[in-house]
């Protein structure tokens, strides 16, 4: 059974239909790389999965919870579906550790002491043990993004959505973030990434999804798809970015 099941999802912003019937199945442990031109609907699709965007028709079921329903328990959904953003979005008035501790204490009612132990653990995982008490403004972009990943991990999600998480980083900082994501993938975390890192998609991904004009245009095993793209659109896209 798939962990995330997307069925014929349609989404419009006003007259502009950005998702034109997207279907996708994601199993536990999958590392799905969603690629495509800007405006192809990949970020919107990702944001639909944890309910940051609504959609007009179709269905998304994540970890057994129907996302689009009127009575959907978004809190329950989001406890199991983490998200990391392009712009990091760390809370600037809180230290790295406090950023990580916030949701466990507020949402899961965990004690501060216990939350700090978890924070130490997840920050160690992303290689930032010594930055626990640093404020976001004292961290590099790569470090901030790793804290953001740790913050999401502290909720013990079953799926993590990564929305172009290296796109706002200086080139030399991209790898430190990708290494963390790769480690998560090796540990069996289910990941859905919207990304422009083609090599990463090929080497770490278990599934590649090429979106074009609001549809899944081509999907398959990354190495095979990259080696022999079937559609001219993907051939052209790979030629341009690869």
């Amino acid at each position: 059974m798939s962990l995330v099941s997307i069925r014929d999802v349609r989404k419009s912003f006003g007259q502009n239909e950005v998702l034109k019937g997207v279907s996708l199945d994601i199993a536990k442990g999958d590392v799905v790389a969603i690629i495509g031109r800007s405006g192809s609907g990949k970020s919107t699709l990702l944001r639909c999965i944890n309910g940051l965007e609504t959609y007009q028709s179709g269905s998304i079921v994540a970890d057994g919870i129907e996302v689009g329903g009127a009575a959907t328990n978004l809190r329950e959904l989001r406890r199991h579906v983490g998200m990391v953003f392009q712009q990091f979005n760390l809370f600037p008035h809180l230290t790295a550790a406090e950023n990580v501790m916030l949701a466990p204490t507020v949402v899961n009612k965990v004690s501060k002491a216990e939350a700090r132990i978890t924070a130490a653990e997840v920050l160690a995982k992303v290689g930032l043990s010594e930055k626990m008490d640093a404020y976001p403004s004292e961290l590099s972009g790569g470090q901030q993004q790793r804290v953001a990943i740790a913050r999401s991990l502290a909720m013990r999600p079953k799926v993590m959505l990564c929305d172009e998480i290296t796109s706002a980083l200086d080139p030399e900082l991209v790898n430190e973030v990708l290494r963390v994501v790769e480690q998560l993938a090796r540990e069996g975390m289910t990941l859905i990434l919207v990304t422009h890192e083609m090599r990463f998609a090929r080497d770490v991904g278990t599934k590649l999804v090429f979106m074009h004009h609001g549809k899944v245009h081509e999907e398959g095993v990354p190495k095979e798809v990259f080696a022999a793209p079937r559609t001219p659109e993907l051939q052209q896209f790979v030629g341009q970015v690869g």
Binding site: L52, R75, R78, G82, M83, L102, V107, R151, M155
Partner: peptide
């Protein structure tokens, strides 16, 4: 984005507002 990050961490909008 900060509000979305808070919501994505399963906080309600009032918790996001407050914290």
């Amino acid at each position: 984005g900060h509000i979305e990050a808070g919501l994505s961490l399963a906080m309600t909008k009032w918790e996001v507002l407050r914290h």
